[in-house]
Design a protein around this nucleic acid. Structure first.
Lengths: 347, 347
DNA sequence: TTAAAAAATGAACACGTGTTCACTTGTTTG
DNA sequence: CAAACAAGTGAACACGTGTTCATTTTTTAA
């Protein structure tokens, strides 16, 4: 009878630990949250009792009480894009390192995002990281109202109280432009997906500005190529279209690495190779870009640093919801590879 | 004063809805869980009141009460590998489709896995999906003891009560072998990472068996190449080593797509190209393999089906923990591309 | 040694939900 | 029409934790 009762108990609760240690349940709670004050003696009794019983605190109950779980909601999209998955990898690492757990949701079309964030609030998450999707203004407002910090990555959302971390698109584009100019390119092209992200547009604007500063006299120095689709296939089709149109360029800058690799392959199909026939620079330093078949010169984003700052934003706003909006710009660097190689010393 | 009290309430609870609708709180609970019996009239009153107040159930409280949250823990590793991230993408889609939420953890070294699964149990997850990492026997036992279903993907764990979903490695390897044989290859090679996964070993064994059945007389028909590292770079280095050794092969099968792409590039660096100089088949149909620079013939795993079955395993075992162990084998198919093209009609 | 201050402790409440168990109301059957 | 029955309802308990608030014990100061 007694045995049955014991074996029926799956979960060992704080009360069990308290009874075994001969103290009150409050003492157990205090020991593990190191919040209140506990004498060294009782702390040790509690810990050894907890070890013996294999006690582990119930996060659901804890979250219910604190009105805040140690979950962080992460919104991602299109994980098949290597940069996205690398970013997620970095975020996961940082989230775990800080003792949180990641609640990951992939959102395919924007209207799913509403439901998604709603579910995040239902789990009382400590924060939300949005890496994609159009800013769902109303829902983000809900989060703010619920005191749930929100941070956007590589994506500006025009809301106060929402922090924002992005790579230094301006400098990245500038580095690319200067590299192409210094390599002796004369006719430039900017390739982007028509329905591009905010970050992509920023990169294009900066590239445009730099080129125009140097080549103000030549109205045809810069060509805009619009891909009808994002990703590798979008870049490849754009190259086909480009060749078919009879246009030419010797210095090409792409909004992201997938587009760039696709463009490179598309040009190859027409017999044009980098760096002999043109120079090419991408954005996002994914594993793919380093592979022998591409060896793409590219602007490298510092994913690790981005993740660190994003989580840091959530934490600081979690402590004080009224701090001023943060706008973090993460440095980038240019990685020189085969498609736009190191410039030789002037003779 | 009253105003202050109202604005202080962030969360709207079931009690608020009940008061507004003029019913008891139990009625509210019953309406949303459609568990007990509620009259049509009160149900409507409750729903309209809930809508007006913007009520949403607190998952933490719900989980605490039910002793089970609608979370599913997912263990992943090395998301930078395109196949891994594609798999995660598929899992996320299915998990969300079924109304769960994914608690994702990336584990880098095996001993982290213990801590990870412990945290899963602390969140009272409805199930755990393990896509990587060595089987943490003790912890999985803990899950079983806590009535938490566990399923492994492409990874056998030698435990009763743990279900298991994997692609049909045998058929995949057979298809590859038959394709190479039918293409007229005579000297075969099998490339795998030395510390390969269980699935990789299975593929190699089957490939070996098929080749040996056909070429029993020739002891040198099959060559084993061991990569000292997994992934693209592993494959590339293996190709360099292979060329340097002076060995030769005209039909190569690789344990995964990353190895295959690396091997392909490595061979290119030495002037050998597929399909002219040798035929090459990989495993895992990642986006990368379809790209123009590789166009790799490969055994394609059905990620969607894998995800569906994995979640299905969790659900059925969640209903009845004592069902017999499931061992699901998901069909694969051979996708013919450039590195081992379609065989021409015999003349 | 005594008074005052500090630290430790346990009882009790709160968090928001699901569900049992009596109880009331409405419906069918003999 | 009465009796048997089904369906709907609300009070109360349980889930496992954090934290306040008196109360007791220990330490420090005089």
């Amino acid at each position: 009878m007694l045995l049955a009762k014991i074996s029926k108990k799956f979960t060992v609760t704080a009360q069990d630990v308290a009874t075994k240690a001969g103290v009150s349940r409050a003492a157990v709670s205090r020991t593990f949250t190191n919040n209140g004050s506990v004498s060294k003696a009782t702390r040790e009794k509690v810990i050894s009792a907890a070890d013996a019983l294999g006690y582990q605190v119930n996060f659901l109950a804890q979250g219910l009480n604190r009105k805040r779980s140690q979950l962080i909601g992460v919104v991602v999209a299109r994980l098949s894009d290597p940069f996205r998955s690398s970013l997620l990898e970095g975020l996961l690492a940082e989230i775990q390192r800080k003792g949180y757990q990641a609640l990951v949701t992939e959102v395919r079309n924007p209207d799913e995002l509403e439901e998604t964030i709603r579910r995040f609030t239902q789990f009382q998450v400590s924060g939300v990281i949005v890496t994609s999707g159009q800013p769902p203004t109303q829902l983000v407002k809900d989060c703010v109202q619920h005191n749930i910090p929100v941070v956007g990555i590589n994506r500006h959302m025009d809301l106060p109280d929402v922090d924002f971390v992005c790579s230094d698109n301006e400098t990245g584009a500038t580095l690319a432009a200067e590299q192409l100019i210094a390599s002796g390119c004369k006719k430039f092209a900017w390739l982007n997906y028509a329905g591009s992200t905010w970050a992509g547009v920023k990169r294009g604007d900066s590239f445009h500005r730099i080129i125009m500063e140097k080549y103000a006299e030549d109205r045809f120095a810069l060509l805009q190529i619009e891909a009808t689709q994002d990703g590798y296939q979008g870049g490849r089709s754009a190259a086909h279209e480009f060749c078919r149109s009879g246009a030419s360029a010797d210095g090409v800058f792409c909004a992201n690495a997938q587009l760039a690799c696709g463009f490179l392959d598309g040009m190859r199909e027409h017999g044009f190779h980098a760096p002999n026939d043109f120079h090419l620079i991408g954005f996002d330093d994914t594993p793919l870009t380093a592979q022998y078949s591409y060896r793409l010169t590219t602007v490298s984003q510092d994913i690790e640093e981005t993740a660190v700052r994003a989580v840091s934003c959530l934490e600081s706003r979690g402590r004080d919801a009224n701090i001023t909006q943060r706008f973090e710009v993460v440095p980038v660097k240019l990685v020189l590879r085969h498609t736009s190689p190191q410039i030789r010393e002037p003779r």
